[in-house]
């Protein structure tokens, strides 16, 4: 219960620098959260060795290791991260959402996201995750 009340640590993984900056700005100033940024799957895996985010927001299409590949790496490594993984994708159609959830994603936020409401979307996912637990 205390966990649901306080969402503060986010990890945002995206290869697009503009979107990383904007997502951080939107979530920190509008949502009062602390956002760590990674520009690739490899960087995210490295960061997770020390960071303990409460939610991971993950771009689907990235060069080298894409979002789904990173998710599989995270799930494969016991104790690395057990919280919800939310995908951000430009192809948020029903088939794609089912597919991403079957891989182990908790939810999907469509891209392009709205910076004014992104923090609400993320908070809603956080609450839903705890209701399901």
């Amino acid at each position: 219960m205390t966990d649901t009340a306080h969402l503060s640590q986010i990890l945002y993984v995206d290869d697009e620098p503009d979107l990383r900056m904007l997502a951080q700005l939107a979530l920190e100033s509008m949502g009062g959260m602390k956002v760590s940024l990674c520009d690739s799957g490899a960087a995210a895996l490295q960061a997770l060795a020390t960071l303990k985010p409460q939610i991971i927001l993950l771009d689907v299409m990235m060069p080298e290791m894409d979002g789904p590949a990173l998710l599989q790496e995270i799930k494969k490594t016991p104790g690395l991260y057990n919280g919800p993984i939310i995908f951000l994708t430009g192809k948020a159609n029903a088939d794609e959402i089912v597919h991403l959830k079957s891989l182990g994603a908790f939810g999907v936020i469509p891209k392009p996201f709205n910076p004014m409401t992104l923090h609400n979307d993320v908070k809603a996912m956080w609450v839903a995750f705890h209701e399901q637990q």
Binding site: E16, K111, F113
Partner: peptide
Amino acid sequence: SLAHGLSGSGTTF
């Protein structure tokens, strides 16, 4: 890559 990047960011900005 360019087209995909723009599709995912244009509306946001």
